Computed example of a mutant assay.
Amino acid sequence: MKVTVTDFLNVRVGKASLNAPTYQYLAPGTILEVEDATYNGDVFEGSNQWLKDKAGNYYWAGATTYSVAGIINPACYDAWHLKDYKIKALHDKGLNGQGTTICIVDSGIVATHPGFDYTKISGKGFMDQVITNDYKDDHGHGTECAGITSANGKKVLGIAFEANLRAFKGYSNISSEEVDMICAIENIPLDVDVVSISYVFVDVKLLDRMTRAISRLINANIIVIAAHGNTDTPPNLLSSIPGVISVGAVDEKGQYAPYTCKNGTFTVLAPGVNIQTTNKTGYTTDTGTSFAAPFVAAIFALLRQTDKTFSPAQALEYINNNHTFSKDGSKKIIDPSAILKF
């Protein structure tokens, strides 16, 4: 395939590494003939994806017009949460999250997963309220959430597959403390577009601190999405914070998923039953409001792609004015085509 160089780019000889020998500096506009496949290599500016030509030269893909769209398996669109919500039609219009940033506050992400090839990933860890560069997911939940927003389409496809992804790790398989998750939220950079949090907060003693952290984001024009919680949890305190879009789950038949927490109030339903996504070691199908929240986050990343000034208040208004209803007529279901005016 042919790609175009978009920024000054070194040709690396024999290895997908920043330390490999280089013999030429390519200027923007240079046309390259490279293999269709991408290769994992050194991470630069959040991407570890490299291209290779027949001579064995490597090129960091981030400085070319290479697009994730080129590797999408069309069968991915058969997943019900993509097919029934007409996501392919949005992608065909160029709505894929390009130029936006989604921050997922969860258990981190397995950034080397083949399902995230060329996904622009960066992140931080906040275990014990200590900020580190370790955001590797040893639990698995964060990687499942990230697949819904950002998977590349080899096996499953994220709705906003061209968006930048920031993984903020606030818990692990051995430690889950609300204060660590709040610390992660407090440190989210104010240049992100959408935040997705699939974690249930229940400690009322921490509500004031959490409210301040969330209000900081909303006041900075960042759209905050939260999973409302499942039947085995109390209602998520995040759902009570003004400006937060709280999400329950709907199934393939348009029915309000009965496992969505009945206590408290939530804003909208989104697909959260039998959702195909990535996991720590491969791919999986999972169920929960945890997976409905990143669906909504990705839709608003597509909207922020078209309008960077679009506000959290407008997001709530769009949901209220553009939705369908669950089969029993009692709950709002997100309508991506209406929200995006397609």
Rank of each mutant, 00 (worst) to 15 (best):
K2M: 07
V5R: 08
L9A: 05
V11L: 12
V13G: 00
K15C: 08
S17L: 14
P21E: 12
T22L: 07
Y23G: 11
P28H: 00
E33D: 15
V34H: 10
D36L: 05
T38S: 14
Y39H: 12
G41F: 05
D42F: 06
V43C: 09
E45S: 08
E45W: 13
G46V: 13
G46R: 13
L51K: 04
K54D: 07
K54H: 04
Y59V: 06
Y59P: 03
A61S: 15
G62K: 13
A63S: 06
T65D: 11
Y66W: 04
G70C: 02
I71L: 08
P74E: 13
A75C: 05
C76V: 13
W80K: 10
W80I: 13
L82M: 06
I87A: 11
A89G: 07
L90N: 09
N96G: 00
N96K: 02
G97N: 06
T101C: 15
I102V: 15
C103N: 05
I104H: 10
S107E: 05
V110N: 15
V110Q: 14
T112R: 11
P114M: 12
P114V: 13
P114C: 11
Y118N: 15
K120W: 08
I121V: 15
G123F: 14
K124T: 08
F126V: 11
I131D: 09
T132R: 05
N133K: 13
K136H: 14
D137K: 07
D137C: 11
H139M: 09
A146V: 14
T149H: 02
G153W: 10
V156Y: 10
A160F: 11
A160Q: 12
A163K: 04
R166A: 07
F168E: 09
G170L: 09
S172V: 02
M181P: 00
A184W: 10
I188L: 00
D191T: 07
V192S: 02
V192N: 01
F201E: 03
L206Y: 06
L206W: 01
A213L: 01
S215N: 12
R216T: 07
I218V: 14
N219W: 01
N221I: 01
A226F: 01
T231Y: 12
N236P: 01
S239L: 02
G243R: 04
S246Y: 02
V247W: 00
A249F: 09
K262W: 09
G264T: 00
F266G: 03
N274R: 06
I275V: 14
T278S: 10
K280W: 08
T285R: 11
A292S: 15
A293T: 06
A297M: 06
L302D: 10
R304F: 01
T306W: 01
F310L: 02
P312C: 05
L316F: 00
Y318G: 03
T324V: 12
D328L: 04
D328W: 08
S330H: 10
I339E: 03
I339P: 02
L340T: 09
K341A: 13
F342W: 09
